[in-house]
Design a protein around this nucleic acid. Sequence first.
DNA 1: CTCGATCCCTGGACGC
DNA 2: TGCGTCCAGGGATCGA
Length: 297
Amino acid sequence: MPELPEVETVARGLQREIAGQKILSVALGKTDFIDNPEALERELPGRTVVRVERYGKFLLLRLSEREDGQPGEGETALLVHLGMTGSLTPKVVREPQIKHTHVVMLLGDGRELRYADPRRFGRLAYLSGDSLSGELRRFGLDPLEMSLAEFAEKIHGRNARIKALLLDQSILRGVGNIYADESLWKAKIHPAQLGGRLKADRVKALYVALQAILQKAILLRGSSISDFLDAEGFPGEYQQHHRAYGREGKPCFRCRTPIRRVIVAGRSSHYCPNCQRAPRQRKKLRKRVKQRRNVKR
DNA sequence: CTCGATCCCTGGACGC
DNA sequence: TGCGTCCAGGGATCGA
């Protein structure tokens, strides 16, 4: 499942492989995961992929103006979310299409940029101008660019579980289930702990852990658990460094206590019951945290 | 604001 | 071998 490190890996690969390429044509298969398929067919041909960036879990293919296009439409981009099983890879035309290839963009150098996605949990959208900036504004801080103070402010006063806050893309953009669990394990915080009840030193530990883990995962080209491959078709290595995720029943790397798996925020959550101590009962907390937090701004 | 439930979708694991 | 069933999970949406 592509999260920030995997998407970063793909973005870097695509930047190297296809930046500067013009899109000559677009062919679509199933389109139920595309925001506006007609816009893709109409707008992409004739535009050049100026550069490829990561934005949270999105790939952002920045596009040039079309040569025949009207001026003043502002920035344009193709947003690609890989969902659970999406892949976006340049291939030579003679290479057979893998199953579930739904978008094929012919490039100026003769290759094809192909989007395949068996489960179609991904998303494609051509956006420009205000709709592009508006879409990007829906998302929160980049975990690698935020300061500790910014992170702390987002957590402060929140009554939701820390796991839910980490996964909330409007708070942080790019963290998914794997790196949430790994960060919480490293910072010794129970996933069901309420965000607003974390002490400053715990928030800092989480901030440090999150950034360290994401950076190391990027270095290792992400985690390949459900057949994730980067833009060149290589798997990542970070799955070999997982300490919590996918390790139910296996000994904690710190204390040998078996890792436990529970559902928190609707997602399976892996943690060490010894190192990551459970919060007290929700009901009590509810009453306790009765005083309102003031809305600033 | 926060929660859980539901849906989307396919492939892989598992049981018989 | 071949079925059926369950599950995984990011995100949107809805009702409590």
